[in-house]
């Protein structure tokens, strides 16, 4: 009977045939089993670009992954994260709303939208979304990270606990690095430096980690340390244009009234 065709009885052969049937229905032109490989390859490329700080490229790769497989939640979440990281939070908010229409109640998407809304400035809604993300089944580093960001944006003290929870969930250096970026976004350079140092300790061969640490040190007016970080970044990636630019900035480091004012009004 047709209504029992899709029930799972543990018969892998039948399940595979059903899967291939649905995939071929979705995309007649592509071979059924080749499709996920290509999309996961795109996701892998996106991740590689993300680890290099090439967020535009990463966004393109996430979109490519979704072109091949629209149900990849990682692709949707990645797009939202990249939009947020390239300072396009209002667009991320719109896109997050759309993604949540397709995957209602998905914890990662809720967290991503919370981050976008938080960056736009609607802290109240961001709180609600972050709470909803935490209430959704499963625990991931990203949800803890977003919760920490929302608390940080609201100048609440508990953000460190959330970031350490995020590190417990996932020991990847990228978690520490993105935590550092969050701290930098909200002008907490001291805490950003600690998180960036954790990232460089975990992955001393990653130029982008050194670059972010350099940025944090620079914000703290630690010229010597920031210069060292940018130099290490350039050792690992000699064509890193941003690091070269920052290194020049550090070299030309002179007294400025803007920096003085920033130092006086620094939150912590």
């Amino acid at each position: 009977m047709a209504r029992f065709d899709r029930l799972e009885f543990g018969d892998t052969r039948d399940a595979k045939s059903a899967d291939s049937q649905s995939n071929s229905h979705a995309n007649d032109a592509a071979p059924a089993d080749a499709l996920p490989d290509v999309s996961f390859e795109a996701l892998r490329n996106a991740d590689l670009n993300r680890r290099k700080g090439l967020y535009e490229n990463a966004l393109r790769q996430y979109s490519r992954a979704l072109e091949l497989e629209k149900s990849l939640i990682a692709g949707w979440v990645g797009q939202l994260q990249m939009l947020v990281l390239i300072e396009e939070a209002p667009e991320a908010d719109v896109w997050g709303r759309k993604a949540l229409e397709l995957f209602p109640g998905n914890g990662e998407l809720l967290a991503a939208r919370a981050q976008a809304v938080c960056r736009v400035g609607d802290i109240k809604q961001a709180h609600a979304l972050a709470d909803a993300a935490m209430a959704a089944p499963g625990r991931t580093a990203y949800r803890w990270q977003v919760r920490g960001e929302v608390l940080l944006a609201n100048r609440q003290e508990m953000e460190q606990h959330c970031f350490s929870k995020a590190r417990e969930c996932d020991s990847d250096w990228l978690v520490s690095l993105e935590t550092a970026l969050i701290y930098l976004r909200y002008r907490f350079p001291a805490k950003a430096t600690i998180a960036a140092r954790a990232a460089t300790e975990l992955a001393p061969d990653q130029p982008y980690a050194w670059y972010v640490q350099g940025l944090s040190e620079m914000e703290l007016d630690q010229s010597r340390l920031s210069r060292q970080c940018f130099e290490r970044c350039l050792q690992l990636s000699p064509h890193h244009a941003e690091a070269k630019k920052r290194l020049l900035e550090v070299a030309k480091n002179r007294w400025s009234i803007g920096r003085l004012v920033r130092r006086v009004f620094r939150p912590r």
Binding site: S22, N23, H25, A26, N27, L59, S63, L66, E67, K70, S71, G75, Q79, L80, L83, E91, A92, V94, W95, L102
Partner: peptide
């Protein structure tokens, strides 16, 4: 999802 036309390029 597989059968519908969904824009996958964000604004």
């Amino acid at each position: 999802l597989a059968a519908t036309t969904i824009g996958i390029h964000p604004p």
